[in-house]
Amino acid sequence: MHSTEPAIADRIAPSAWRKSSYSGGANADCLEVADGHATVPVRDSKAPAGPVVAFSADGWSSFITAVKHGRLFS
């Protein structure tokens, strides 16, 4: 099924994005998040016109916890 609704990134004002406090690293690996949505929109700060991943609040929390505890890296 094809949706005619705009992508979530198209509905978020550029000023609404902020760098995640969980971003960092020497390679300027930064995520941006937008607050005030039913989901947690996340995008790569180096590609603002690129795709957006929308996490549920619980999904985002689980992802951050996994990153903090090194569970996503081998």
Rank of each mutant, 00 (worst) to 15 (best):
G25H: 01
S20R: 15
P41W: 02
I8K: 14
H37P: 01
G24M: 06
G25T: 07
L31Y: 10
P41A: 08
S21M: 00
N27G: 02
K46R: 08
S3N: 10
F73V: 15
E5W: 02
S15L: 02
F55S: 02
S74T: 09
S45C: 09
C30Y: 15
P48W: 13
L72S: 08
G24D: 10
L72F: 14
N27M: 03
E5S: 10
S62P: 00
K68Q: 13
A38F: 08
S23G: 05
R43S: 09
R71F: 12
V33M: 08
T4P: 00
S23L: 00
K19N: 13
K19A: 09
E32H: 14
V40A: 03
D44C: 02
P51R: 11
V33I: 14
T4K: 07
P14V: 08
I64M: 09
E5D: 11
N27I: 07
I64N: 01
W17Q: 06
D44K: 01
E5K: 10
D35V: 08
P48R: 08
V42H: 05
D44T: 05
I12T: 02
E5F: 08
P48T: 06
V33Y: 01
S74K: 10
D58R: 15
A16I: 01
A34P: 04
H69P: 00
F73T: 15
P41F: 06
R71D: 12
D44V: 09
S74Q: 09
V67D: 07
V33D: 00
P41I: 04
I64E: 03
K68I: 03
V42I: 13
N27W: 08
R11P: 03
C30N: 14
R11G: 09
P48N: 12
I8N: 05
D29K: 05
K19C: 09
A28M: 06
A57L: 10
E32S: 11
A13L: 10
V52Y: 00
A28S: 13
K46D: 00
P48Y: 06
S20I: 07
A66T: 05
A66E: 11
S23K: 04
G50R: 01
G25D: 07
